[in-house]
Nucleic acid binder design. Structure first.
Lengths: 301, 301
DNA sequence: TAAGGTTACGGCGATCGTAACGATC
DNA sequence: GATCGTTACGATCGCCGTAACCTTA
């Protein structure tokens, strides 16, 4: 048994059991990985993969059992390398972030700016994706840290830290009836709603508020980002439900924002990263920076 | 990085950082391990060991951080091998038990006999040791399963299952005053006591009973095993406090046993094995056998 | 000077790449 | 016939062992 065989098993799983793709990923020729897999299975005495003819089509019972240990080993190996690199120079490397539009646009600029001043040598790589994709990015190690409101707490191999809390606001045109008087869910339910896609930016909290009140939510437009929502509010499509952060008093002078914290549950934006996964010092400091910025957001409210 | 380098780190820790002893253990020459360590440190870019001249005298900060990952890898590697061996033939292998005298003599014979009938191909290796040694045996993988009453619950990388509960009894000669009337801690405290060594077979429960009652425990003889205790009770040295299991109505006709469950807390005998450590099927079945036998003991009372 | 560690070098084995072959859609 | 996997074989590289050398109790 050796580490490249262990690595091979991981890669094979990622490539849907394709030896040729695995060979590509590992920068060796196909015959090499074929042989290595044979040797490994021979050493263990039992096949690890189900085969259809010569093709691998899945894992055997034993293979599946072993995969958990395999990822443990890979994780530990990576941790060792990270720790050593960190020890050599904890001021350079790459910080891989994954986040949604809302966080990238409205929350992250400040903590990232501060972080860059402290760690000018660290390259920041940011991918924007849906909450499900974020989790996948963490699992496949394409991202080290995810910042996100939805979903992440359902996954149990992630460490979750609450970054800040926020609530939804309604945005409407100046002549809109919702401009006057108290806003209730019932009143809201009378209008077509423009808000985030399902699974994005606290959408689930909007859903549950309406469901609990047994009201129907009439969604006219669901978008991944606030700018799209505001655009359609401006052409009179209905009431926008967005995060308060996204309202810009200057640029959005033509719109009126009204607080909905009394009728829609507060949302929590969280920081997520893999358990048992070593994060370089600068990543740990970035998380601290996020928490500081999160606190500032909380205190503003 | 490769698995033998990882293994080397573990062995070095076990041999007090001696390259020559590590080489011996790994069945290679000294120069080979020396070179491998150099290569590994070179690859990581920082030394893992503190040196005094050429001698290794300890681990660096980085070395220490890494050791945790190293043992994770070694553990996972072993698990893979165990699983594979198990899959090939779960009816043979070696079951390494570690236990104390009391369990070996009075509790284990029945479950072991039953186990042997089901798994005639499994070699049973049993070492008798003190509770501290048992834990060490588990950690150094000299034993897979430990059966023991004391200590084990203080260690947090062990899985602990309660096997059975029992209580102490007093054994005395037929003409002894304790033969008559109810036994209280106060009466017991009047006599010299013969019982188990500190840290053995529920001794701690005897201590705490006396301490709670603010009575002095006058121990004349402390032994690791019941036979020694009974021998000295027979020559009139005092009152023996032993586990009820150890009283044999036939062989011990000359002694009288009296129940002490009302004055000394019940003891629990536990099964312990390493967390995150794969146990072969037959070992898992042996544990079941232990639990069954434990239940029988519980129900007898 | 014995014991423990390093360095230099030769030999062997493991693993890779090339290439030809086999199977499957 | 294109894609994917296996087998055979030669070349290379890594790792071990021998042995000489260095350092410190």
């Amino acid at each position: 048994m050796n580490l490249s065989q262990i690595e091979l098993l991981r890669v094979l799983q990622e490539t849907n059991f394709s030896l040729s793709k695995a060979a590509d990923k590992m920068n060796v020729v196909q015959s090499a990985v074929s042989r290595q897999l044979q040797l490994f299975e021979e050493e263990l005495g039992s096949p690890l993969f189900e085969r259809q003819g010569k093709k691998l089509i899945g894992m055997t019972l034993l293979g599946n059992r072993i995969m958990e240990e395999v990822s443990t080993i890979n994780r530990a190996k990576n941790n060792i390398q990270m720790m050593a690199a960190d020890y050599l120079d904890s001021n350079q490397g790459t910080l891989h972030l994954a986040t949604t539009h809302a966080q990238a646009k409205y929350f992250l600029p400040k903590p990232i700016q501060r972080f860059r001043e402290k760690y000018p040598g660290v390259i920041i790589s940011m991918v924007q994706a849906s909450p499900e994709q974020l989790i996948d990015h963490l699992h496949t190690r394409k991202a080290d840290i995810a910042i996100c409101t939805e979903r992440v707490d359902e996954v149990n191999d992630l460490v979750i830290e609450t970054c800040y809390e926020w609530h939804h606001s309604a945005v409407v045109l100046k002549n809109h009836p919702l401009n006057e008087g108290a806003i209730t869910l019932e009143r809201l339910a009378e209008f077509p709603i423009l808000t985030y896609n399902f699974g994005y930016t606290g959408r689930s909290n909007i859903e549950s508020a309406f469901n609990n009140a047994e009201l129907k939510l009439d969604i006219t437009l669901a978008a991944a980002d606030t700018d799209v929502i505001k655009t359609y509010v401006r052409i009179g499509l209905g009431v926008g439900l967005i995060t308060g952060m996204a309202y810009d008093p200057l640029a959005d002078q033509d719109l009126v924002m009204r607080d909905l914290s009394h009728i829609i549950p507060r949302s929590r934006t969280k920081i997520a990263y893999l358990k048992h996964n070593y994060l370089p010092l600068y990543s740990q400091h970035f998380i601290e920076e996020l928490l500081i910025a999160g606190n500032e957001v909380n205190n503003l409210q």
